[in-house]
Design a protein around this nucleic acid. Structure first.
Lengths: 243, 243
DNA sequence: CGCGGGTTCCAACAAAAGTTAAGGACGCCG
DNA sequence: CGGCGTCCTTAACTTTTGTTGGAACCCGCG
């Protein structure tokens, strides 16, 4: 796989969220990245593990999650190409959660040493990555609100719209139709509800003519009601670096 | 108020979570900080506001929260002396949530410019603060799990133990007895339940002889059952920098 | 000292979500 | 092509949580 394909989504995303310079782009293009293939539903970095590299998603979908003593799992975030979901491991060496693939993925690994040297050489890039982890935290905050305060149908709509807006940045939304490759079990784990209830909620959104969801793909039927239901305000994604 | 009192809790906390050097301590002691008093239940930084300074809690308790369209509020985190809850505003200028006091507070304000100059001068301090925002994110992740997966009594126990462990670092736990100055309304907002239900849960913990909670103070009655109920694993607080 | 506002506490009922169980669709692989 | 496993779907029932409304309590303040 050519180097620019590996880094394309990352650079595209950084341009939008951090206003990266051409010089910095060249630095990122020069980064040594070890590319590996992962099958669907596979752990990439485990909870409790000590990480020595960071993971760039080149292709495919990933999720971060935590499992509690009772065995129940909570999905914390969804991740798409161009993202580095475990950038935090650079400073928080032992993982407090798990990173795993949802679909088959192409992942690129960058060693902590390499990243630390890059930070020393280019403090601006370090700040850019810092900003990235702060946006990560902002997304967690919104996820708390979603799970804590919104009724289940609104939770689902909100997660869907967040995903759509992020996919849009990397050019992956066609006509309000986008990928969301989760099983109903996983949707339940993301929303803090059971799979049975997730099914009820999906059924209701379909019956109300708001969205269709099948085979990992979302089709919006009534954009206005979808937006209203989700109570979505995208400010937390901080997609404009100038603000 | 003498300068060392203002910075005491901050330095104490950084020593434990980041292994700060004496030289860095001196830099922090030299930071210009504007101290102001705030009454209880007062917004400090509002959602949507553009911040130009960061807020150090010198004395008192604060909380961060988001309010959704329906008017319901979700508390995202609790904050104690020595913490800088809005450090993220350094790079994410417009606030995506609110910071407000719970009790009467003494707050110290440090301008973004000052902090940015400090980062340039001492990259190690920048990394320390970065690490701090990453721990912040780790706490949000655990908060998601709490609100998403645990039954209400376990949620309450978990928030209580998290608070206790953090208070312990700054030397504010006496004999398993510690401050938690929230009304039942606020506890509900933190746990994603109503105030009525929060009351039920508190009543049950009291009846079961696990913890007592009155007038903003928690007294643990049965530590073993308290821990088991909370399903608490403090790794996410990342209190040991060496790991 | 009594008044008033904000808590705390509680009961009765309603709604949302969890549990259990089972049938059906779909795709993969032998 | 048939069997198997995963996922989806639904129903019936239980449990948890929300809602409403009201009483008791506490505390600061006039």
């Amino acid at each position: 796989m050519p180097s620019d394909t590996i880094r394309a989504a990352l650079v595209r995303r950084l341009r939008i969220s951090s206003g990266i310079s051409e010089e910095d782009v060249r630095e990122i293009e020069a980064l040594p990245i070890a590319v590996r293939q992962y099958p669907a539903e596979t752990p990439v970095v485990r909870d409790g593990e000590r990480a020595t590299e960071c993971c760039l998603i080149v292709e495919g979908f990933c999720a971060r999650s935590k499992t509690i003593a009772s065995g129940k799992r909570q999905i914390l975030s969804l991740h798409i190409p161009g993202e580095i979901p475990d950038l935090m491991s650079l400073f928080l060496h032992v993982m407090d959660h798990e990173l795993s693939t949802l679909t088959a993925c192409t992942l690129g690994f960058i060693s902590h040493d390499t990243l630390r040297r890059l930070h020393q050489r280019r403090p601006v890039v370090a700040e850019m990555f810092w900003r990235d982890t702060l946006i990560d935290a902002a997304m967690f905050r919104e996820w708390i609100v979603n799970v804590g305060q919104r009724p289940a149908p609104a939770r689902l709509a909100h997660v869907m719209i967040e995903l759509r807006e992020r996919l849009r940045v990397i050019g992956r939304v066609d006509d309000e139709n986008f990928e969301m490759p989760l099983t109903q079990e996983q949707i339940g784990e993301a929303l803090g509800i059971t799979a049975v209830h997730a099914n009820r909620v999906i059924k209701q959104l379909r019956q109300d003519g708001i969205v269709e969801f099948q085979r990992g793909r979302v089709t919006v039927l009534d954009e206005a009601r979808f937006l209203e239901l989700a109570d979505f305000d995208g400010r937390y994604l901080h997609q404009s670096p100038t603000l």
